[in-house]
């Protein structure tokens, strides 16, 4: 698998151009620029508080920005006249804390977006939902509620829920950080499967094994800045910045 060769000629699926963001007087993103090409898997990593989660949430405008611009599939996220709900429906997102809807069954969780946003019929939505549930290996749990599943199972349902909208790109915000160690693997397996099928993915994670396996590029952030934006092999084998070297030595030490 030659993961390092990005299809560089294609138009970017996500283009982040010089964005900055402040919480009051505190600047959390400083002039960040990067992009994700169609079919590419980009891993965003960095120490905690570096702004990586904030960065990924700006892509579907869950976090507003004060400077710069972002386009998804050529559509300006901040542009006036952009149908934000429609744009978001095409961008799948998986959260650190799963955020399944606890008052709805697994099946209803998978059907909600399809029914309300895409206007699919109940039968079509159910059939798509159950197919995806089978794909993440949880068919037996269709009638249960999120609280009855383990963390790993909930996160797999969350991935299936995002996929139910037929997204053109998937965002993962630390999808394994809230999981017990023994459940990390089952979630990463689903994500590796997605990557191999050619899904465009932007993944905030500390899982360097995952990055080595499927990433095309690695974006390293520190203190709100993108410090390094390199091909996977370059990043791991010869990181240029001191900060990335320090980070890698800490995270790969054990």
């Amino acid at each position: 698998m030659s993961a390092s060769a990005s299809p560089a000629s294609a138009a970017p699926m996500i283009a982040i151009n010089g964005i900055s963001k402040w919480y009051g007087p505190v600047q959390v993103l400083n002039d960040c620029t990067t992009q994700v090409t169609k079919g590419e898997v980009v891993v965003v990593c960095g120490p905690s508080g570096s702004g990586k989660s904030t960065l990924i949430k700006t892509v579907n405008a869950l976090e507003p920005i004060q400077k710069g611009s972002i386009t998804v599939d050529g559509i300006g996220v901040q542009a006036k006249g952009t149908d934000l709900p429609k744009l978001r429906s095409r961008v799948g997102m998986v959260f650190q804390h799963f955020e399944l809807f606890p008052h709805l069954s697994i099946t209803d969780n998978l059907m909600l977006g399809q029914r309300k946003v895409l206007g699919r019929s109940a039968e079509a939505a159910r059939s798509t939902g159950l197919t995806l549930l089978e794909r993440v290996g949880l068919s037996a749990h269709a009638h249960k509620y999120p609280g009855q599943l383990s963390g790993g199972q909930q996160q797999r349902v969350a991935i299936a829920r995002a996929l139910s909208m037929n997204p053109i790109v998937m965002l993962f915000d630390e999808p394994t950080s809230a999981l017990d160690p023994e459940m990390v693997g089952e979630v990463l397996d689903v994500m590796v499967g997605l990557a191999k099928e050619g899904m465009t993915m932007m993944v905030v994670t500390h899982e360097m094994g995952f990055a080595r396996k499927v990433a095309n590029r690695v974006v390293f952030m520190d203190r709100g800045e993108i410090v390094e934006d390199a091909g996977k092999d370059d990043f791991f084998d010869k990181p240029r910045s001191d900060r990335a070297q320090t980070f890698l030595s800490k995270i790969l030490a054990h």
């Binding site: 949430k57 579907n60 869950l62 709900p85 429609k86 744009l87 978001r88 429906s89 095409r90 961008v91 799948g92 997102m93 959260f95 804390h97 955020e99 399944l100 809807f101 606890p102 008052h103 909600l112 977006g113 309300k116 946003v117 829920r161 995002a162 909208m165």
Partner: peptide, 29 residues
């Protein structure tokens, strides 16, 4: 939790749909 609103918005639900299908049913319960 705020994350529930984010999750609903990320699916593409608008304000009214987010309130009616995700937030209020939980708030009410």
């Amino acid at each position: 939790s705020k994350g529930q609103t984010s999750a609903a918005q990320a699916l593409g639900l608008n304000y009214r749909q987010t309130m009616a299908t995700v937030i209020l049913p939980q708030a009410f319960r």
